[in-house]
Design a protein around this nucleic acid. Structure first.
Lengths: 348, 348
DNA sequence: TTGTAGGCGTTATCAT
DNA sequence: ATGATAACGCCTACAA
């Protein structure tokens, strides 16, 4: 049914070997132009399409690159993914995508799957949870994978024992805190995200540490754990408002002048909650986020946040994953850039 | 170096065939439990990992599903992609992703690539351009692919000759127009998107048609072509404002009371332009979009738009692509749902 | 139930 | 420069 290289060879009146050489122009390209033409013509005539699987088997290497993200619908990950696909295309590789919804079992299963596919490398994108067992298991799976010749790299925290593009959450939020302090804010509340979410934790931690140094420590009572989502931010903010710590600026019982949410969508949720409560942002309360989600750049008031070069990060992690094997995991730090906007105006 | 099934067989003291049957539990699972155990144990001991490429070759079928999107970083496509990956996982398939940036050549190249990989099916997501040649070429490539046993499906316009989840842009915007008319709007302008962008065209066309029927035809002068992006919306709106057709409500020269942008990010850009010009939305001008981008649901004023079940669409198109071959391309229409919000309040 | 052997489509090592 | 011919790792009639 399907036309094989043998068919092409026969049609061109040459041997299988010659046909192979003519078509892929292998290492020692030793095939007379004339024959070469004949083979190519035959291939075209027969609409020959090389079987990548057969090639992979014969060559002993594939052209696949595995990419694991928590949720491809999340703009954070889809932007990284776009960087990865671009870099992969440049490298002549094909990206196999898995959206695991943060399920450790599915992550493991996908690594296993990529191992079977003999993929060239695996990229794990996205912050980890504070789950020793799960991280260790995944790390081990990656060690195994690498021991069999695959490449591996991650973006987020350097917890997997592989080359990692490390997102410098702490220093970024520390700088954000300094700049907000510089704009006159002193009494902060934080929408801190889920308890075991390391990225959330790091972001808040940098923020808190910096403020402590500046002599404006965050009151632990004003740190609200919540989901890493828009609704999480909304509910956490509602709670602060219900407790009366966030309210009208002229209300003496109000004790918070700025709220830091560990990501943009939470910040937006918080804004919505504030508005729903009849508060004005930033007049009554300032709000800052993290990520600088593109589609959110036009919200009103414009949101102070931290920008990460996500597409570049995708390209970088691809380079790492594809780089020749090396000893100690390389760590490539990436800084966020503080973007001050209208949601945190200088406070007078 | 790598351990093969033969190694496992030897280790277990059985034949290659038995090892194969024990491990993949093939069709007629005829292997004594005892032996089966021994093989599995040996496999585990040796850390055997089946070679998917070899299996694919021997079995004559792969487990790959190709997905082509215009831009994976775009929430529209990443949400569809999440639906596809979920459905593919259920079907035991692996998704190979290509983000082609609307480049016909890259689309063709990817189809070709998937052909070589002997992928089970190809999904083409995203509206087409009004480019006969490019569409015809892609359609032909897909015909070729299908003639070789692959499945194919698309989402958007039914122009590729394959099963398609057809986005009913026209009827959705027609309904939007009716509802806006019902809210009292009469003088519309439209940010129509790029000239040859079929999705943009359909959306505007449904809108215009409906208004014509209602006796409130859109003045051609108030239809502004522009890029399908936030900046496109911004600039087009700037232009309307500069021309004086959009302005303060109490300004008698203002002739537009509502602006329809063919997608949400353009609508947001338009809002930004209006604000930059000192106008109030919706007091001075109402604005509506299309897509109901999740991250935009909290903008102020909340945006009237049309919601598409993108993740479901991803799942549906996967079903289509995987369905047993059939004759005439099946077309599955999907309607958008009009969501009226604050950006287009009842006009008094 | 288990084993033997041929085949899947290429590549690559040898001679020639 | 070209052509046989082993691999590559697995599946699956077919035979035993």
């Amino acid at each position: 049914m399907t036309v094989t290289l043998s068919d092409v060879a026969r049609e061109a009146g040459v041997s299988l070997a010659t046909a192979s050489r003519a078509i892929n122009g292998s290492a020692n390209r030793t095939v007379r132009p004339e024959l070469r033409e004949r083979v190519l013509a035959a291939a075209a005539r027969l609409r020959y399409s090389p079987d990548a699987n057969a090639q992979a088997m014969a060559r002993g290497r594939t052209t696949a690159l595995g990419l694991i993200v928590h949720d491809i619908a999340d703009p954070y990950f889809s932007t990284i993914a776009s960087g990865v696909t671009a870099a992969a295309e440049r490298a002549g590789l094909v990206v196999t995508l898995a959206s695991t919804d943060r399920d450790p079992d599915r992550e493991m299963a996908f690594v296993e799957l990529m191992q079977r596919q003999r993929a060239r490398a695996i990229i794990v994108a996205g912050g980890r949870y504070d789950d020793e067992a799960a991280n260790a298991a995944l790390a081990e799976a990656l060690v195994e994978y690498r021991s069999r010749g695959g490449g591996a790299a991650a973006v987020g925290q350097p917890l997997l024992g592989v080359d990692t593009v490390v997102i410098e959450n702490r220093s970024a939020t520390a700088e954000l805190a300094r700049q907000l302090h510089g704009r006159g804010y002193r009494r902060f509340a934080a929408l801190a995200g889920p308890a075991h979410h390391l990225t959330a934790h790091e972001r808040f931690d940098g923020f808190r540490g910096s403020l402590a140094e500046l002599g404006a420590p965050v009151d632990p009572d004003l740190v609200v754990p919540c989901a890493f989502t828009r609704d999480g931010g909304y509910e956490a903010m509602e709670q602060l408002i219900a407790r009366g710590v966030v309210g009208r600026r002229d209300d003496p019982s109000t004790s918070v002048d700025a709220v830091f949410a560990v990501n943009d969508v939470m910040a937006v949720g918080a804004m919505a909650a504030a508005r729903a409560a009849g508060l004005d942002v930033p007049a009554d309360v300032a709000i800052a986020g993290f990520d600088d989600i593109i589609t959110l750049r036009d919200i009103t008031p414009s949101l102070t946040t931290i920008r990460l070069p996500l597409a570049d990060i995708g390209a970088m992690v691809t380079e790492l994953a594809l780089a020749p094997d090396n000893e100690s995991p390389r760590l490539v730090p990436v800084d966020g850039e503080v973007i001050l906007r209208d949601s945190t105006p200088p406070r007078s």
